[in-house]
């Protein structure tokens, strides 16, 4: 999978690349407007991470250019602006997602995963992992042909882990993923723990191997 990171902050871009390259993504960089235009004209990407404020131009124009060329690249806007207007405009022009800075790399990874799955697997969108089978379209789980019923939260957690395989994910990142802005206003993130406990139980009851490990006391890792 090929990604293009259009971001003028080199430190942030390299962090993103370092994290995502572990997920079998190949990352390329564009640090300004003209580089970005140049690259999208030449190549196709599975997913483009687009910062809106770029030296030399507005990220929205890159988005418009992609649309004009009828390119199918998935686009996730990563912006420091976090303004609803930008979000709506970006999604209207054709972005697939919008992520406000600062964000967790694990969250970005989950969004990239989901955008790529949506773009590239329109008909049969099934993620397989040994005995575990996830149908992204119908949001159903099967373990060795046994259907498992998960709550909305448990499903969201499972997908998050799948898209961050072998990564240490802190409880805070999980809480933010589940509750968004609400999570960072609540000091207590124990609700994550009970959802994880239920998810683990449901999976193991259905005969799924124990891939979800607790690490360092409060972190989690989906090991495969």
């Amino acid at each position: 999978m090929k990604l293009l990171i259009i971001e003028d902050e080199a430190e942030l871009a390299t962090s993103i690349a370092a994290y995502l390259s572990g997920e079998n993504y190949t990352c390329e960089f564009a640090a300004n407007f003209s580089q970005a235009i140049h690259k999208i004209n030449l190549y196709e990407y599975d997913c483009i991470l687009l910062d809106l404020m770029l030296p030399g131009g507005d990220g929205m124009q890159i988005l418009a250019e992609l649309k004009k060329q009828n390119k199918q690249d998935g686009v996730i806007i990563i912006s420091a602006k976090n303004s609803l207007y930008d979000k709506i405009q970006g999604l209207q022009i054709g972005a697939d997602d919008y992520l406000a800075k600062p964000f967790h790399l694990s969250e970005l990874s989950a969004r990239v995963f989901s955008v790529i799955r949506r773009k590239n697997f329109t008909n049969s969108n099934i993620v397989r992992q040994n005995e575990l089978q996830i149908d992204i379209l119908s949001k159903t789980i099967q373990v060795k042909d046994t259907p498992v019923t998960l709550t909305k939260r448990e499903y969201a957690l499972l997908l998050y882990f799948i898209s961050n395989k072998n990564r240490v994910i802190s409880k805070n990142a999980l809480a933010e993923h589940l509750s968004g802005d609400i999570a960072d206003m609540l000091d207590n993130h124990d609700f994550v723990y009970s959802h994880i406990k239920n998810l683990k139980k449901k999976l193991s009851d259905a005969g799924c191997g124990n891939y979800l490990k607790s690490v360092y006391g409060t972190g989690y890792r989906w090991e495969i």
Binding site: S15, Y19, G22, P102, F103, S106, R167, S170
Partner: peptide
């Protein structure tokens, strides 16, 4: 965002 991403990397 940079600090957060660096901490996320450190976790790994």
């Amino acid at each position: 965002a940079i600090v957060q991403s660096k901490l996320d990397l450190l976790f790994q």
